[in-house]
Design a binder for these strands. Structure first.
Lengths: 202, 202
DNA sequence: TCCTGATTTGACCAACTGGTCAAAGTCACG
DNA sequence: CGTGACTTTGACCAGTTGGTCAAATCAGGA
């Protein structure tokens, strides 16, 4: 395995190729369903060569999840207590939906992990995630107390945003099967905006 | 493998025990993550004995999915064109949420399958499922045309109900991690009813 | 009780899978 | 161009897993 010196050109290229391939495979098959050989082939490397860059299959998975959780929470971090409440919320919803459209593999990687009980990231959920959500819920409560958005259960409000937006990535096949040819992302933004506008307008 | 004669007492008992165990294991680990040995142990049988009742691991999985899809669609089937529109919709949402609470393993089994591209039930999605949804969407459109519920994209309306309700089963660990000790199902029904009442009231 | 078909299992197997290792090849820089 | 570090790989291994099979055991009707 490469030392801790600054990574060489080849290390950078191969590590990136591996993570890209691993994301494809893990998100489509889950951790247990993915094989190291599959990832290697997809990355254009041999299996021992993969394991030269990452010490184990689990290490690749961890690297992906770590990188993921951070970007995944970004849209919520941007929620600004100083902004106009309804627009802030609609902006959050919009950003979250765009993430589902632009990063469906990441969404499915996450979904796979959570559905199976989050064995590898449970602590991140109760710590990082909960902390951030609690903080933002406090903002929501403030807005509700001031009558600037309608009062609803703030945690369920956030859950609803997660589920609604991620559904389009995680259940993509089902959505497309039902819609026939129509592109879900052509019509989803308007529907979802309407939904939250009606729910939250005081 | 047992013949096609009427099933014996032992056959009934063991088949049921196997499916119950398989549901536990598949829903928690996914198809690839589950092992036949695990299912056998959970069912209190030996591995060869399992394979005496089901010819393969895949056969158990198929048996579960088949049984599942039917009951899964029941709440939607009950949507009645003759009823009062808003109450019909709220009733549907309520039934769907109760299924998530009462049958979370089934929900996760389904989620696992869909997230990974529905390799085993794709045809059921484009046929059975799509047919039923199209039929119910026609009812929704009728109600909207008559101004009895607010006009919104009917397919997205249904997707939203699926995602919102199933989220509580599929992402159970996440929901509970964020909520701390509070029981999600204590407060979810009210939130969700409020949401759809505001969205759909003309 | 005896017999026949149903049920159960220990022993086994081939394929797959994650991971190792020593040897060979390549790179970059003095 | 030589050298030491970095990179790549063929061969291999041990553990796991889905599935088989012949033999043993059991259930229940005649």
């Amino acid at each position: 395995m490469p030392a801790d010196h600054p990574p060489t050109r080849i290390q950078k290229k191969n590590r990136a190729a591996i993570l890209e391939a691993a994301l494809n495979v893990f998100s489509a098959q889950g951790f247990r369903g993915a094989t190291v050989d599959q990832i290697a082939t997809e990355a254009g490397l041999s299996k021992p060569n993969l394991l030269y860059y990452f010490p184990s299959k689990e290490a690749m998975h961890n690297a992906l999840l770590e990188r993921l959780l951070d970007t995944w929470l970004d849209p919520l971090r941007e929620l600004n207590a100083e902004g106009e409440p309804l627009e802030e919320m609609l902006g959050y919803v919009k950003r979250k939906l765009q993430m589902s459209r632009d990063y469906p593999r990441e969404s499915r990687l996450f979904a796979n992990e959570i559905v199976q009980g989050a064995p590898r990231i449970h602590s991140a959920l109760t710590e990082e995630l909960k902390t951030l959500v609690d903080e933002k819920v406090a903002i929501l409560k403030g807005w509700m107390d001031q009558g600037r958005i309608a009062p609803v259960h703030p945690y369920h409000l956030i859950f609803s945003i997660w589920s609604l937006t991620q559904h389009y990535a995680d259940f993509d096949v089902q959505v497309r099967a039902v819609l026939g040819g129509e592109d879900p992302f052509a019509t989803a933004p308007e529907f979802i905006e309407t939904l939250y506008r009606r729910l939250l307008t005081p």
